[in-house]
Design a protein around this nucleic acid. Structure first.
Lengths: 165, 165
DNA sequence: AGCCATTTAGTTGTGCACAACTGAGTTGTG
DNA sequence: CACAACTCAGTTGTGCACAACTAAATGGCT
C-alpha cells in the first residue's frame, strides 16, 4: 500500500519531480533557518533578533524613514513591522514619531543608543562570513542566484495561481 | 551625523563588510520568504501550509515515523512539530499513536486521506519549478550550494560564539 | 530492587510572517 | 464643500521557529 511505484530514476515522472521538490524545499528551508540560527547566536550579544538587525541595517544606511519605506526595503508589511518597531523603541534603539506633514505616516529614527550600536554591529558580518566557510566571491555568486530566484518568484506570485500546466 | 564615512568601495573595511552583510542577509531572507509565498499560494488549494507540506513529503517518502525521526529529517523539534501534527491530525491527514514498544514515542502515520492527497500534490513541484524560471541543473546547483552553506553554518553554530577574530 | 541520567513528546512564552481588517488622514472629483 | 477612493499604521488571529521547561518512560548501575 501507499505503493510509491518504482519511479525509474531519471525518468521525467511526476514522482521524480516530487522527489526533487522535497530536496530543494528542504535545502532552502534548512539554509534559511541555519543562517537564522547563526545570526541568533551572534546577535544575542547585541540584544537583537535577526529581523531587528535587518531593520537597523536599513536605518544605519538610510537614516530616518517612514514605516512604509522601511517595509519596502525589507519587503515587510506593517503587521510585522509595527510590533517589531515597538520592541525596538522600548529597547531604546529607535523613536517613532508621527510625521507632521502627513499625519498618517510614522517616522522611525535612531536614538543615540541605536546609532551607537552600529559600532558594535560592525564586528558581526566578518563572523558570519567566517561561519559560512565561503569566500567572498562565492557569497556574491550565491547572492546573485538568490536575488534572481526572488524576483522570478515574486513575478510568479503576482499571477496568483491562475495557470495549471 | 551618523556619518557613515566614505568607505572607499573595495577597501576591506568593517564598513564594507557591514554593507555586504546587509546584502546577503536581505537576499537569503527575501528568497526564503518569496519561496514560501509561492508555495503558500499553490498549497492553499490543498489546504496545507508550507511546513505541513514538508512533513507530508517526508511521510509520503518514508511511511510511518516517530516524531523524533520526523524532526531529524526536517531539523525541527517537538516544540514545532507537536502542534503542527495536531493540526494535521484534526485535518484528518495523519494519526498519532503511542508506540506500544516504547511508550515515550509517538508514531505518525498517514490516514487514507493523507495518502490520497499525494496524488494531488504531484502537480505542485512542476509549478514551483516553473515559477523559479530556473532549469533543473541550475536548481540542483543552487541546492548544492545551499546544503553546503547549511552544513557549514550548523557546524559553526555548534561552537556557540566562542571566537572573535 | 532502587536510583539516576537519558530519551521522547508535549507545553509555555516570545518573536516573526502574513492575511484580513480597522480607523484616521489624505486626495481626487463633482 | 461633500463624498468616495485611497493610503498608512496599527490590530487581530493563525501558524511557524525556537528556547526553556515539564512529565513520563526507558535503560544503566549499584
Amino acid at each position: 500500500m501507499t505503493a510509491t511505484p518504482p519511479p525509474a530514476a531519471q525518468e521525467n515522472t511526476e514522482e521524480n519531480w516530487l522527489r526533487l521538490d522535497s530536496q530543494i524545499c528542504f535545502s532552502l528551508h534548512a539554509a534559511s533557518r541555519a543562517f537564522n540560527g547563526v545570526y541568533r547566536v551572534i546577535l544575542k550579544e547585541l540584544g537583537l533578533t535577526y529581523p531587528q538587525y535587518l531593520v537597523l541595517l536599513v536605518l544605519w544606511e538610510h537614516g530616518e524613514l517612514p514605516v512604509k519605506k522601511l517595509g519596502e526595503h525589507l519587503r515587510l508589511d506593517s503587521g510585522t513591522l509595527s510590533p517589531l518597531l515597538k520592541r525596538l523603541e522600548s529597547a531604546g534603539l529607535v523613536r517613532r514619531e508621527r510625521s507632521s506633514r502627513d499625519e498618517r505616516s510614522v517616522e522611525i529614527r535612531l536614538t543615540e543608543e541605536g546609532t551607537a550600536l552600529r559600532r558594535r554591529a560592525l564586528r558581526v558580518p566578518r563572523r558570519i562570513v567566517a561561519a559560512t566557510g565561503f569566500g567572498l566571491d562565492e557569497i556574491q555568486e550565491l547572492r546573485e542566484h538568490l536575488d534572481q530566484l526572488t524576483s522570478a518568484l515574486d513575478a510568479a506570485a503576482l499571477e496568483g495561481a491562475p495557470e495549471h500546466d
